[in-house]
Amino acid sequence: MTTATTSTTQPGRRSGREPLLAVEDLRVTFGSRTSRTVTAVDGVSFDVAPGETVGLVGESGCGKSVTSLAVMGLLPARGAQVAGSVRFDGEELLTLSPQRMAEKRGAEMAMIFQDPLSSLNPVVPIGVQVTEVLERHRGMKGGAARKRATYLLERVGIPDPTRRLSDYAHQLSGGMRQRALIAMALACEPRLLIADEPTTALDVTIQAQILALLNELVSESGTALVMITHDLGVVAGLCSTVNVLYAGRVVERADRHPLFATPRHPYTGGLLASIPRLDEERGRRLVPVPGSVADNIPWEEGCAFAPRCPNAGDRCEAETPALVPDRGVRDPRLLRCHYPLAGDRTEEDA
């Protein structure tokens, strides 16, 4: 399996910063001996430095959520096989005991989910849920923990936090629930935060509030943020490096500016061409990506995107493309495509 892992070609690497999280050749398969196995994540590598926001972008079934669950060690031990390497601050997580992993979760790495209602315990007040985290991981006691919990709720913008401590999840609005969830995630000042579609269930004005909050956290406290989303608009404003996933593999990785300016993978380009932009002239006909995510071929037989790809050629269904440094653009970029879209680099440049 060819997977580029060298950090020299890694886009988004700021000099002098060691990655906090390094995911290497991560592979997750579901299923057991009796049923046929499904490879949800197929050799994904990326890393995240402190204060950096890395995006994992893709549609349903691209493996973005499974990747995050695997990093957090939240996949069921039965039924899911995880291979590869996930290093957090140099320490391998995949071989850690479940107890050690549970200590890391909450204390050093935290996750927020798409559906805040089902992620909160419905029968325990949110204040207790926040203080529990503090008591478990920080050894804080009653009064101090309550005080800290109040501060955290205030920090994420929940009005009247002292009163809100005794509220239950169902008493809060969707935006407030997501804030409460973020407060829990931040309780122990984690160094890594994974946000899995944190604003998908929210209205756009509330989404703006939550994204602004996440942005503030990253820039002020140096938290490393992994942002998982299907929304290219969210990525454009938030992520320094973007990984585009398709059918369990990274197909393109670049810094956000060059990626949106000159998408190289036909899938990235297809996504950008298929969504209407609020700020564009009306009347442009959208260019859809044909078929659906179900119309794939296995990566072993070629490029999984080939059946839907307008650029597909002879090699695409015969030869699996590798994720390699892209010489067609000026920025450092990784690309998995035989016939990419036009780049910004001419022959003279090369």
Binding site: P288, P290, G291, D295, R308
Partner: peptide
């Protein structure tokens, strides 16, 4: 256009 649509719908 209809034939194009057919292809666009997927398998």
């Amino acid at each position: 256009a209809r034939i194009d649509r057919l292809a666009a719908a997927g398998r």
